[in-house]
Simulated assay, not measured.
Amino acid sequence: MSASESSRQFLLTVSMGKRLIADALAADEAVLRAAKEHCLVVIMGSTNAQIAAALAEKLSLPFSPQGFHRGLQLGPARAVEHPAPQSADFIVRAGELLRDKTVFDIADTLGKDDLILKGANAVHLKTQSAGVLIGSPVGGTMMPILQAAVGRRTRLIHPVGLEKRVERPIGELAALASRSNDGKGLRLLQSCGEVFTELDAIEALFSLRAYLLAAGGVCGAEGSVLLTLSGSEENLLRAERYFRSIQDTPSFSL
């Protein structure tokens, strides 16, 4: 840190982190260009529900985050009754919402100018790689996504919260998941997509460097991260005002 820079600590809850990532991506020129001029695909997920809501507001499109998810990791022995999930991803082509469509319907039409946002279940910060849990015997949404991303160079971004960080490289963990002796449990797929965490969102929105200092807490701070932000005092004040404005962001609910 140079003599002209300042630093400050901020605590982000999981819900604040999702909101931060959503606001940063909804302000990103490449994301907006894909939605307005090409095709943007936001795959159903808890973080992506926030992203789709932010984009829908910016693009004046209808959207409800209720039920915008596929598989969910719930607490142990927790029985939850909830409405059926939505049946469509949030897909915008040339500014128009493609209603009742999923990535399975349009993957074959995606190309290098298009963009896919797909959440992740694991992130390895050192290698900037993401892993996606696979429960489907045919690979779930990642199969058509990889066909587009690998086969036709469609840009793929994984918005993922820091609470999903893992210690070992994703490829190593994927191999462990595949070696289950009883043949049960989820698999883990290492993706070729880009990682976008709260650290990236802070740099994009406020031109600040963010470092993970500590994590965890209780009474609503479970899964939270304590970050140190470094940069100009002006940008730190902007970040502080923003974090104050989102501190009451509600937790994900069904």
Score class of each variant (00 low, 15 high):
43 I>M: 01
207 S>T: 07
73 Q>G: 01
82 H>R: 15
127 T>K: 10
11 L>R: 15
250 P>H: 05
179 R>D: 15
253 S>F: 00
212 L>A: 13
139 G>R: 03
46 S>M: 00
132 V>N: 01
226 L>I: 09
229 L>F: 05
221 A>T: 07
96 E>L: 01
37 E>M: 02
83 P>F: 04
142 M>L: 15
77 A>M: 08
155 R>S: 02
99 R>H: 15
202 I>K: 12
91 I>M: 01
152 R>H: 11
160 V>P: 00
233 E>G: 03
177 A>T: 12
78 R>S: 14
209 R>S: 15
170 I>N: 07
217 G>V: 05
32 L>K: 09
84 A>T: 14
14 V>S: 04
134 I>Q: 12
209 R>L: 14
36 K>V: 04
171 G>T: 08
93 R>V: 03
36 K>P: 02
36 K>D: 11
169 P>N: 10
27 A>Q: 11
62 P>M: 01
126 K>P: 09
94 A>C: 14
98 L>T: 08
15 S>C: 00
151 G>T: 04
207 S>G: 01
247 Q>K: 15
146 L>R: 06
112 K>N: 14
173 L>T: 07
67 G>D: 09
195 V>I: 15
21 I>F: 07
173 L>M: 15
233 E>F: 02
227 L>G: 01
40 L>P: 03
124 H>N: 14
222 E>N: 10
76 P>D: 08
198 E>S: 01
219 C>Y: 13
170 I>L: 02
7 S>A: 08
165 R>S: 08
169 P>T: 05
124 H>R: 11
70 R>W: 05
165 R>C: 02
183 G>P: 02
108 D>V: 07
43 I>A: 13
134 I>F: 05
40 L>D: 06
129 S>E: 12
127 T>H: 06
190 Q>D: 08
93 R>W: 03
183 G>T: 05
217 G>F: 02
123 V>W: 05
189 L>G: 03
213 L>N: 09
122 A>R: 04
122 A>W: 00
8 R>T: 03
244 R>Q: 13
139 G>W: 09
88 A>D: 11
174 A>W: 06
113 D>L: 09
167 E>P: 08
165 R>K: 08
135 G>H: 06
10 F>L: 13
215 A>P: 00
127 T>F: 00
191 S>N: 01
183 G>W: 01
2 S>Y: 06
21 I>E: 09
180 S>D: 15
115 L>V: 11
227 L>P: 08
166 V>C: 14
64 S>E: 11
225 V>G: 04
61 L>A: 02
199 L>D: 08
228 T>L: 12
33 R>Y: 07
94 A>T: 14
136 S>H: 04
124 H>W: 12
244 R>E: 15
16 M>H: 03
246 I>W: 02
7 S>T: 10
203 E>Y: 12
129 S>K: 11
56 A>T: 00
